[in-house]
Design a protein around this nucleic acid. Structure first.
Ligand SMILES: [Mn+2]
Ligand SMILES: [Mn+2]
Ligand SMILES: [Zn+2]
Ligand SMILES: [Zn+2]
Lengths: 134, 134
DNA sequence: TCAAGGTTTAGACAAAGTCCAGGAACAGGC
DNA sequence: GCCTGTTCCTGGACTTTGTCTAAACCTTGA
């Protein structure tokens, strides 16, 4: 498990004490190109760490969000997903299999923000749904 | 319950047999300016119809979605909301209390669709989060 | 060695949603 | 009016997602 070294530093830099469980979870989620659910993370992290409980997965994912390592996204019915891409970006969700794909911020631009003067905007994203062409 | 007459016609026009339960649910959701959850609908519909089960609320809301009377939206953590506004539009979600507000389609325009050539787009919306100014 | 925090765990709990078998309501044909 | 087949509704069991709690388990530093 030597490749975990990298995650020790990342966690420390964010003020998080590295533990075997947290490192396994970091390895499962921080470099994922997908947008895993808590349960996805639980399954994958168990491949790295023999002992790991569901509660710890939820605690740790919430901690990572709080410390700015992850963002939680509400894009799927019934479950939150966790996104290691913390830059602003848009999302495409595939109707067939639920796959979530990042759309770079620069690819789309939203005009008309000035009509939203009644809101203090914290974030804004375009959510696109459909199918990938084959 | 005479004002239900209106809903009898709407349901028939969409190929749905009107029943007391369905009419109560229609009255609770179809003209709502809010974006109620299934449980919100359950609570309000019970004010119109004495007997109504949770299962019927879910069955009926799903039926209304299938028949095009409603759209289901994934905007809140933990629960789906139902939207009687079936025209395309955007959404603002208030961080404080979760209130969901419709943003008219024409207020915003998304440029750069041509970069999404790899997708067959079924729908697209801008999701804005923040706070309402007071 | 000891105490104090911090961390993890199992299991209880709650909420959202689906599914099923039995019964009620209803429509069309006599 | 009655029969009969279909549609509809119900309570409750069940599943999944997520939170909470008390006990146990480290660490770290005095
Ligand atoms: Mn795996
Ligand atoms: Mn009410
Ligand atoms: Zn993303
Ligand atoms: Zn809406």
């Amino acid at each position: 498990m030597a490749f975990m070294k990298e995650y020790v530093d990342i966690l420390r830099q964010h003020g998080i004490q590295p533990t075997p469980q947290r490192l396994a979870i970091a390895a499962a989620v921080l470099h994922s190109a997908e947008h895993p659910t808590a349960d996805d993370v639980y399954e994958e992290a168990r491949e790295y760490s023999t002992v790991l409980s569901r509660a710890t997965v939820y605690n740790t994912l919430n901690l990572f969000v709080e410390k700015g390592l992850l963002r939680m996204q509400i894009l799927k019915e019934g479950t939150a997903v966790f996104d290691p891409n913390i830059e602003r970006h848009h999302h495409f969700i595939d109707d067939d299999d639920g796959t979530i794909i990042d759309i770079p911020w620069g690819w789309l631009s939203v005009r008309g923000r000035e009509r939203l003067a009644e809101f203090d905007i914290r974030e804004m994203q375009v959510v696109v749904r459909g199918r990938r062409k084959k």
